[in-house]
Design a protein around this nucleic acid. Structure first.
Lengths: 138, 138
DNA sequence: CTGCCTGCCGCAACCGGGTTGCATTTGTCC
DNA sequence: GGACAAATGCAACCCGGTTGCGGCAGGCAG
């Protein structure tokens, strides 16, 4: 685990450093894709799910992670790339594979933004494509 | 209630006509926006939620309605416009108001479709914008 | 008409993800 | 060290969705 890097990141956002926060942050940093609360629970056997849940709350409030609802019924969490907070323009596309049930981050593809009717204010955008991923179709 | 219209729609899809199916279909046809299972439960006081649930399953399987996950934790249902099944190209944008908690169908705005990396097959697209709707910002 | 069979429906119980209340532990500051 | 605040673990709860099962209704055969 890259202890130093975790501590830096936490301190940079003014989040108090604790052992659990290190564990959760590290797991998310190592993950190549999004993780659900259940994923984290499995990986961090010793940690209670409510602690993970509250940790994620804190992380999200401090723009360390953002959450994605991929429509599977369980929220996915992903570490924020930029050092600063994620804006609407930064939101990227996610792809949910209906076969292997993984949610991919297509970081290189920004979520498209359509024009809204008069009077609508945008806070966030959620763009999920469902289908079969490249490794599942053989 | 436009009884005749309901019967037509059901028969056209080969769905057996029952009183409950009429009620659910009618409620959805009258709705100007998406409805959740809970919304339907409230509107159709006399009908059990499991019956509504199973009715919606049948409707969805027969392309009478489609479901949208707006990220609020409760699925929304919306009557299919076209007489035939909804394709990816037909999917339109939805807008969730964080103040009044309603999900709007922006029928005139098709969901954008981005290019995916090699090997990914698209089945469906979910495009939700969250923010404040025009009637909530005064 | 009668009986059978299939599908629809209501009830109650269940499930899983998320959330909360509360007591305990940990950490910080003086 | 002591006091106070924050973080954590545990257990219970909540809510939307889902299922098992028994009862009912409607269509069809005899």
């Amino acid at each position: 685990m890259d202890k130093q890097r975790c501590i830096e990141r936490l301190e940079k956002k003014g989040v108090r450093v604790t052992s659990i926060r290190m564990l959760v942050l590290d797991a998310l940093m190592r993950a190549s894709r999004t993780m659900s609360l259940a994923d984290l629970e499995t990986e961090l056997e010793t940690v209670d799910k409510s602690s993970i849940f509250r940790t994620l709350e804190v992380f999200e409030a401090n723009h360390l992670v953002h959450s994605i609802d991929d429509g599977t019924g369980s929220m996915k969490y992903e570490i924020c790339e930029g050092e600063d907070s994620c804006t609407v323009a930064d939101m990227h596309t996610h792809f949910y594979c209906e076969k292997c049930h993984k949610t991919y981050c297509l970081k290189e593809i920004n979520a498209p933004l359509v024009d809204l009717p008069e009077g609508f204010t945008v806070h966030s955008v959620n763009y999920i494509i469902k289908g079969i991923c490249s490794s599942c179709r053989e």
